[in-house]
Design a protein around this nucleic acid. Structure first.
Lengths: 150, 150
DNA sequence: GAATTATAAATGTATATACAAATAATGTAA
DNA sequence: TTACATTATTTGTATATACATTTATAATTC
């Protein structure tokens, strides 16, 4: 029984909206815990992985730090520091943008692409396992989440 | 248009399960951002608030650190340090448990209860506003999330 | 009862989030 | 062109998560 009431030992909630917020926070923790253990052996965090995915999505075009920030799952995160970590591990390159020297062009390296290819397969398989829903239910969940934020 | 594809500028997903994971991570960030700004003026974080709520749920009975940990939304969090922060602000008291000196009894103070009363009202109202769903949809979302983790 | 094992809590360290402030380069208006 | 505002990025600092380790106490097994 995966009911949220049991999981956090809270008998009742003010209303379904308040329950949904708590349920989302708890489910987030469930997902992130699973992701962390998946990424652990590869010396990369889920957030760093997400940045690599954004960079590859640009198909070889360099991307600025602020453009990465815009696409991140957590808008309050810090793309600048994540890029720095990725650079230290050789998965991205950072060059000054010639047309606007305030900007920094970030590009995924071949090593980064290689790592991403390996990880992406693992993540995709793991997500299917970790989300214990039927296809129709997953679609419905996406619709509800999109509307929730609306 | 609150669609996740637009929000993070990603055109397509491998499947509805993978999309749901991304959607949940993004929605979590949306919720937490809102919570943070709500709590900011009161010098308390959402996590600390959650610990206060757990303590009040015990109806005056003291609660051990590990019992708090069990009820937290994020099981990987660190109840010991959160309790320490709350103690510094005078919202909880910490006493050695007489029957087992390894344990620590944590008790919410009157100031803590007072703060909680104020905050809870704000949080409950905010959650209703922030979750842009009908009652039936919120119920459905809770069911899907419970099943997802199942 | 001494040695071992188990449990509760605290601590150490790395990563990330949250948000303000600093720095640097560009754009614009006087 | 100087002054001012805007934008891109970095940096500073506090909080929290993640996970391993340490410390203290209690329970157990020999």
């Amino acid at each position: 029984m995966g009911k949220i009431e049991d999981a956090i030992q809270q008998k009742e909630f003010k209303d379904p909206f308040n329950k949904a917020v708590v349920n989302l926070l708890y489910t987030h923790s469930y997902l992130v815990t699973s992701q962390n253990s998946l990424f652990k052996p590869y010396d990369i965090s889920p957030e760093q992985y997400n940045v690599l995915r954004i960079l590859r999505g640009q198909n070889g075009k360099p991307t600025t730090v602020s453009s990465i920030q815009d696409r991140m799952l957590n808008k309050m995160s810090n793309a600048s520091r994540l890029v720095e970590k990725l650079k230290l591990k050789g998965w991205v390159k950072r060059t000054e943008c010639p047309s606007d020297r305030r900007q920094v062009d970030v590009l995924i390296t071949d090593e980064g692409l290689e790592l991403l290819k390996t990880l992406e397969k693992l993540v995709e398989e793991s997500n299917i396992r970790v989300v214990n829903l039927e296809v129709e239910e997953a679609i419905q969940l996406n619709e509800l989440l999109d509307k929730l934020r609306g």
